[in-house]
Structure formats: C-alpha cells, structure tokens
C-alpha cells in the first residue's frame, strides 16, 4: 500500500491551556492512531502544543466557494453585531 492510498487527516493543535485547538495543516496516515503520532512528529516538534486533534479530512463538511456571497456578504453591513462599543477590561487577553 503506497502513501498515496492513505487517507488525509486535518491536524489541530492547542498551543496552551485556555486556547482553542487551531488548524495547522494536514497529513497522510493509514489510521487514527498513526495520524495522531504523525501529527505529534510533524506539527509539535518545536513545542507548538499541549493537545492534538486529528480529523479525517473526508469527514469535514465545508462551505462552498460558490456560495460565498450568500453565506457571508449579508453580515458585512451589520456593524452593531461587533462588540466594539465595549471597553475591554485590562488583563483580559482572549475575549
């Protein structure tokens, strides 16, 4: 079985406690166990993370580029949805 037959996995890394997992890239692996270990070796070798998720790329349901306008443009003129009218208390980094 060549590498080309291996499914693709998306990798998410949480860089430290309190932050969310962030998508960092993808890799090929024959199964979930191997995907997790490959992710460790490829994406966290410079202390990038404290937690890893791997997700089969085929399981991700993505919005389509062709629907971009109807999906996202209507939010463009709704400035009142932004919490920019509040003062952020000092010391709150991730609001």
């Amino acid at each position: 079985m060549s590498t080309r037959d291996w499914p693709l996995w998306e990798v998410f890394v949480r860089s430290r406690r309190g932050l969310s997992h962030v998508h960092v890239g993808s890799l090929h692996a024959p199964d979930a166990e191997m995907a997790l270990r490959n992710a460790r070796d490829v994406y966290t070798r410079r202390q990038e993370g404290v937690s890893l998720w791997v997700v089969p790329s085929a399981e991700i349901v993505a919005s389509e580029a062709g629907q971009r306008e109807e999906f996202f443009d209507p939010a463009a003129d709704k400035i009142y949805r932004h919490p920019t009218f509040y003062e952020i208390p000092e010391g709150v980094e991730h609001l």
Binding site: T3, W6, L27, H28, A29, R37, N38, D41, V42, R45
Partner: peptide, 12 residues
C-alpha cells in the same frame, strides 16, 4: 523513510 511523516519521526 517510507513517507514524510515517518521521516520526521525518525529524525526526531
């Protein structure tokens, strides 16, 4: 190594 991921693992 057989693939890039294993290449990095063995290097590590």
């Amino acid at each position: 190594a057989p693939q890039l991921e294993e290449d990095l693992a063995l290097a590590n």
